[in-house]
Amino acid sequence: MAVQDLDVAAYCLRLGDDALVLAQRLCEWAARSPQLEEDVALMNLALDLLGQSRSLLTLAGEREGAGRDEDDLAFLRDEPDFVNAQLMELDNGDFGRTMARQLLVSAWSLPLWDALVTSTDPDLAAIAGKAVKEVAYHLDHARSWVVRLGDGTEESHRRMQAGLDEVWPYSFELFESDDLLQRLVERGVAADPAALQPIWLATVSEVVAEATLSLPETDWRPAGGRRGTHTEAFGYLLAELQHLHRSHPGVSW
């Protein structure tokens, strides 16, 4: 039943790593959120992302055909083997910065999954059919916080803008193309990143305007996550994620 397809495996690994790493970051808010309801909300978002990641990493393993399952891929790869966008791994910072990242990511993943619903890979399309409905809620959640904090007090406005300014440069990586993506777009498997950018920018601009914030202007475009280059913060995240599994291989409850 498993069909080997290394390009599809590599693409699923990127999307699976995006979801896994962002889920892990969001979990750092457990018991530290500004409100009890927000604790629950962030853990629900993380749970959705973790579920998406499990499906994607499982599919990546199947298409790779080397016998690796979701646990092997999540727990037994080192930093340079992870191909998530750097935006996902950035430190949470304050709540405003976390919500800025959440807005930029969700405004990208909604049109992404929407496009992948019609992917020519039926298993990827099936995962997309579920994910698109989940991230619609994620985008709505991020939007409401960015507006509330941006259009709030002088202090909340200042911090929301600062958070947006800090994470903004990392959004460019989401729209980069490369040989792998070009091949997969041609086959109708992957979403064309260039086609997602105008949709993303329209959503983000609308929210930013409603929040009385301004779109950051910068030429700095850090990237490299898709090739295994990561920020300093990533190693610490991975250590926490993998510590238990690596210390006690095969451990179960």
């Binding site: 309801e37 909300a41 989940e134 709505d140 409401s144």
Partner: peptide, 13 residues
């Protein structure tokens, strides 16, 4: 609505 997310992902408060 008090919160978009509740005790499980599928519910709101």
């Amino acid at each position: 609505e008090m919160a978009r997310f509740a005790s499980t992902s599928c519910k709101s408060m």
